[in-house]
Structures are given as C-alpha cells and as structure tokens.
Design a binder for these strands. Structure first.
Lengths: 143, 143
DNA sequence: TATTGTTATACTCTATAACTATA
DNA sequence: TATAGTTATAGAGTATAACAATA
C-alpha cells in the first residue's frame, strides 16, 4: 500500500464525494449547482447579490444560473418593491420539493462512502469534516 | 453551533478542498481536468482508452480534453506502431514541468485547510481520507 | 456617482450519436 | 464485425467586459 501524502488523500476523498453527490443530484434531475441554489432559497426568498456572495460566484454568473433554473420552473424572480433595483429569488413548489428530496438523499446516501469504516472512525471523520468545513467556509450548510 | 449531518459535513469538506485545488491549478494556468490528465501521463505514455477508463470518462470526452491540452503544448499524441488504431499520449517538457509544479503545490498547500486541527486530528483525518478514497476509488493517486 | 442586476461573448467540461480507420 | 479514436452537436458552468435601470 503506497504512502499517500495528506494533500493527495484529501483530494481523493473530495473526488469520491463529488462524484457521488453529482449522481444523487442527477437522480433528481438536478445539477449540483442548481441543487445548491435551491437549497439556499428553499426557506425563503433571497436577494441576488446576497446569493452570489454566499455561493462565492460573480453576480453575472449567478444571473445565468438563475436563468437556467428558472427555465426549468424551479425558482422565480420577484421584485422587492422598496428598492426597485432589487430582485429576490424564491423557490416554486416544484423547486422546494426537489430541494428537500435531494437534501434527504444526501443525508441518506453520502454516508455510505464511509461504510468501510468502523462506527468510531465514521464519527471521527464526521467531526473532523464538519470542523474543517466550518472553519474554511463558515455558514455554509447546504446540499 | 448547528448539528450538521454527516452527509452535509462531507459535502462541506469536499467543497473547500475542491475550491482550493481549483485555485492551485489556476495558479499554474491549468484547469483541474488538465492537471489530472497531466498527472496520469507524466511518468510515461498511456493509451487513450486506458486513460479514459482511469479518468472515468467516455473516450470522446477524453479526446476533446486532449485536444485542448495539446493545443496548449502540454501533451502530444503519438502513434504506437504495432496497432495503427492505437494512439498513446505523452507529456511534453512543459507539461511535465507543470504537472510536477502542481503536484508539489498540492502537497504543500492543500494540508493548510486542516491547519485549525491538532496534529493528532490531522493525522486522523489523513488516514481516514486515504482509507475512504482508496476503498471507493482504488488506484487513483493523482493531483 | 454608486449600486443592482442583466446581456454579450468566450472558453472549459462533459454527454450522446454518428463517423473513420484499422484489425 | 469489433475495436480505437475522432467529429458534430448540445447543454451546463463560469469568467470578463460592457450595459441598463434605479438610487
């Protein structure tokens, strides 16, 4: 068994997680980007600028992602009224349903990746992953 | 501090790793896909079909990735001689240099993500990540 | 003038289907 | 006929730059 450096091990873990997540999203006819967007608006409308910042993407990239997601009937743009420059994004009923289905499936199927570990090791990994993610990217609990 | 489910914690960890890796690749003027390709051919030529299987992508998708990478002067196609259908892919000098630079940078900078952990926790995470990655995706040690 | 969001354009990545050349 | 690889086409994602409307 080759000694694998820490960096490579993290990268390998990330790859298997990403691959499984993409599959889960695809099973619900979603791309990962759209699933993430839905997750952030499923509990109430949010401004475009706020979403772009949370997603770590430029506002124009978000605008294009929203275009595609809106075309699928999963979200819709709304005017805010007070400031007429502002657009808020809300989920549709179909979007909310999809978001919750993916979220449940992530919780159910992603942990399978660690099925080869002992229960104690799984708990360890759970805690360490949460700790690193929280430190590097605070306020980002999304499927 | 919100209780984060295991699936969400894994996803959060994967996101921060992926983001950092993409940045490291970009610092060397590479995309993650191209860096991965370079990594697989940097120690000797490989057949297209073999590469496609290793990368988990269809052979036509690989052909296109190779097109872009070859256009940048990082790899080049060679005929195998024996079977004239076969094409082998080799790195150029520039490609080899880039591959090794990225590889070194991954080893140097990716572990920083875990800098908030104790040395013991880092060792734990290292072992657990390597174990899960090896089980889910054997033979895949690549930057 | 500064801010919010969009449009235009370009490039990467990946997928499906149809294709060429060799075996 | 089967295999190795390519080409055509399309859609998703993201980036930069220029733009429109509102404050």
């Amino acid at each position: 068994m080759a000694e694998q450096a820490f960096g490579e091990a993290l990268l390998g873990l990330s790859h298997v997680i990403q691959r499984r997540h993409t599959q889960i999203c695809a099973d619900h006819d979603l791309t990962p980007a759209q699933a993430q967007l839905l997750c952030m608006v499923k509990d109430g409308p949010r401004r475009m600028a706020e979403l772009a910042a949370s997603l770590g993407m430029a506002k124009n990239a978000l605008s294009q992602l929203v275009d595609r997601t809106e075309r699928r009937g999963l979200v819709h743009r709304e005017s805010d009224g007070n400031d007429r420059r502002v657009i808020t994004l809300a989920v549709t009923a179909a979007g909310k349903e999809a978001a919750e289905a993916v979220h449940a499936d992530v919780a159910r199927r992603l942990p399978d990746l660690a099925e080869g570990l002992s229960p104690g090791d799984r708990r360890q990994l759970h805690g360490l992953a949460a700790s690193v993610a929280a430190e590097q990217c605070p306020g980002r609990t999304c499927s």
